[in-house]
């Protein structure tokens, strides 16, 4: 008996208790992949499919969607995904305070600074570009910020899946930028939108 009058568990039972409790805690303190990755995947799949249909692969649109309409689809879906992610981050950070919360705050401001500067650059430069290249500047620039911040987030919290999703975004973005606006939209919709949905579901099943 222990000093609390409990029955003494066997060493096997004790190790099992340790493992179970560790798993329960990690699930609560780490982001739910279904809420972190899948909404962004859906947003990019919808938004960049709209852009792909607008550009086409040979300069001919596949559907009568204007650039502004495609942008509206992407922005609305991204705002929805961002709200889900913000809710998830708030849920996680409500459990603890300390260094981890400070990291999260700095990381949040880094996102804001990266995106704000990207928008300023694109607004200054895009009037000088033909429509296709201006679209590529907005999409490619935004994805560059996202890729770098995923990789940096992986480094801050030692999260390999997050780091590798960042590497994947960087690679696909680079390839799309070289191939042109139509290809960039297609690759982003399928490989990054679909890819994040697949990664989110896979990580969720594994957790």
């Amino acid at each position: 008996m222990t000093d609390d009058g409990e029955r003494v568990p066997s060493p096997e039972e004790t190790l099992r208790v340790i493992e179970q409790q560790r798993a329960v805690t990690n699930r609560a303190l780490q982001p739910d992949p279904l809420r972190m990755y899948v909404p962004w995947g859906v947003a990019w799949l919808l938004g960049f499919t709209a852009f792909f249909l607008h550009y086409g692969l040979n300069g001919e649109p596949y559907a009568p969607i204007s650039q502004m309409q495609a942008l509206a689809v992407l922005m609305i879906a991204q705002v929805a995904a961002g709200s889900v992610a913000a809710y998830e981050i708030a849920r996680m950070s409500s459990h603890t305070r300390g260094d981890n919360q400070v990291k999260g705050t700095m990381y949040g401001y880094t996102w804001f600074a990266g995106m704000a500067l990207m928008i300023v650059i694109a607004m200054r430069v895009s009037p000088l570009l033909p429509p296709e290249l201006s679209g590529l500047l907005w999409a490619g620039g935004t994805l560059t910020v996202v890729a770098i911040l995923y990789m940096a987030g992986g480094a801050v919290w030692l999260q390999w899946p997050m780091f590798f999703i960042g590497v994947w975004i960087a690679g696909v973005n680079g390839l799309g930028l070289m191939l042109g606006a139509g290809w960039h939209a297609l690759l982003t919709a399928v490989l990054l939108g679909g890819g994040q949905i697949a990664a989110g579901l896979w990580l969720w099943r594994r957790s």
Binding site: V17, T25, T96, D99
Partner: peptide, 11 residues
């Protein structure tokens, strides 16, 4: 075990 999953400096 629960508290040990936190990084040092976290509560």
């Amino acid at each position: 075990v629960t508290l040990n999953t936190l990084c040092e400096g976290d509560e």
